[in-house]
C-alpha cells in the first residue's frame, strides 16, 4: 500500500487527514471548480470522489516529486469528463498547487474540461471520448506482465461508458492475456447523459457481465471507504479484477443526487452556496 514507503506522507496529504476527509475536500473542490468554470459534469465528478480519495490515500504508489517514477502505479480516468475530482486529488497530494484548481477551463489554463496529460503532472492519459482509457490501460498492464514489472494499473470507467463496444473488446483481451495486474473500477451510478442506464442501454447486471467475460468481480458500496480499500488493494492473480462500485451520482450534495440536471448545470448563486454549506458541514 502507498507510495514507496508511505502513501499518505509522500503524497503530501497531511498525516492526520483520513481518506474520508480527503474525499470531502475533493467534493468541495469539485463544486468550486464547476462554479468557476461554468462547465458541466459536477454530478459525475461527485460520484467518484470516494473512489478517487481511497485510491490516492490508500492504494496508489505514486511520487509527486517524480511523477514519471517508473515503478508508480498507473491510474487512468477513462470517464474523462469527471476530471475535476482527479485534478483535485493530484493537487491535494502535492503534484501541483491547489490554487491552480479554479483556473480549470479558463483561457490559457492547462486544466481542460476533460482530463489531459499535457503539462499536468500525475496524469497518465488524456481522455474525453469514452471507451478509450480502459483500452490504453490494458496496454500498460500488458507491458508490466510481459516484462515482469510490479506496478499495477487502475482505470476508472463509467457505467454509461460500458455502452461502448471498445470496453468489451478490452474485457475479452485482458481475460485472454491474464492481466491480473489490471483493475477496472466501474462507477455504477446507474445514470448516463440522457437518463437512467436501464432506460437507454440496459446492462441488466453489470457485475454479471464482467464475470461472464472471465473477470474477478467485486461489488462494493462506492462510498464506503473500507469496502473500497479492501477491493482496490486486492491483486488479481491471473484474472483481471473489476470492482463494480455502486455509487450515487451527485453524492454529497442532496439536491444534486440522482438528478440528471446536474450532469449539465453548473452551480451558481444559491445553489452554489447551499452545496458548499452542505459539504462543509460533513
Amino acid at each position: 500500500m502507498g507510495i514507496r514507503e508511505c502513501t499518505v506522507e509522500k503524497l503530501g496529504v497531511k498525516k492526520t487527514m483520513t481518506s474520508k476527509e480527503l474525499a470531502n475536500r475533493l467534493r468541495v473542490h469539485t463544486v468550486e471548480m464547476a462554479h468557476y468554470s461554468k462547465e458541466s459534469h459536477v454530478a459525475s465528478a461527485l460520484s467518484i470522489c470516494d473512489i478517487v480519495a481511497v485510491l490516492y490515500h490508500d492504494v496508489l504508489r505514486k511520487d509527486p516529486m517524480d511523477a514519471k517514477w517508473e515503478e508508480r502505479d498507473r491510474f487512468i480516468l477513462s470517464k474523462g469528463h469527471a476530471c475535476s475530482t482527479v485534478y483535485a486529488a493530484l493537487a491535494e497530494t502535492g503534484f501541483f498547487s491547489v490554487d491552480e484548481l479554479n483556473t480549470q477551463c479558463q483561457d490559457g489554463s492547462r486544466l481542460s474540461g476533460h482530463i489531459t496529460y499535457k503539462n499536468v503532472p500525475g496524469v497518465e492519459l488524456s481522455t474525453g471520448s469514452l471507451g478509450h482509457g480502459c483500452c490504453v490501460a490494458a496496454g500498460m498492464a500488458l507491458n508490466a506482465k510481459l516484462k515482469g514489472k510490479k506496478y499495477r494499473t487502475f482505470v476508472l470507467v463509467g457505467d454509461g461508458e460500458c455502452d461502448e463496444g471498445s470496453v468489451w473488446e478490452m474485457a475479452l483481451f485482458a481475460h485472454q492475456y491474464k492481466l491480473g495486474n489490471l483493475t477496472v473500477v466501474v462507477d455504477h451510478n446507474k445514470m448516463q447523459a440522457m437518463g437512467f442506464c436501464k432506460d437507454i442501454a440496459d446492462h441488466v447486471n453489470l457485475a454479471d457481465k464482467w464475470q461472464a467475460f472471465g473477470w474477478e468481480v467485486i461489488e462494493v458500496d462506492g462510498h464506503d471507504h473500507g469496502q473500497l480499500s479492501m477491493a482496490l488493494n486486492k491483486r488479481g492473480t491471473e484474472k483481471p479484477v473489476c470492482v463494480v462500485a455502486h455509487t450515487i451520482k451527485g453524492k454529497g450534495v442532496t439536491f444534486m443526487e440522482n438528478n440528471l440536471l446536474w450532469h449539465y448545470r453548473d452551480p451558481q448563486g444559491e445553489d452554489y452556496e447551499n452545496a458548499l454549506r452542505e459539504l462543509r458541514a460533513q
Binding site: 483500452c135 490501460a137 490494458a138 496496454g139 500488458l142 471498445s166 478490452m170 492475456y177
Partner: peptide, 26 residues
Amino acid sequence: SEKFVNMGICEQNMASTAAGMAMEGN
C-alpha cells in the same frame, strides 16, 4: 512468439492497447 500479440478482431482495442504499450517504451 513472445513479441507477437493477436488482439482478436478488435481494432479499437488494438490501437489503444498499442498506445498503452508504446507509452511504456515499446
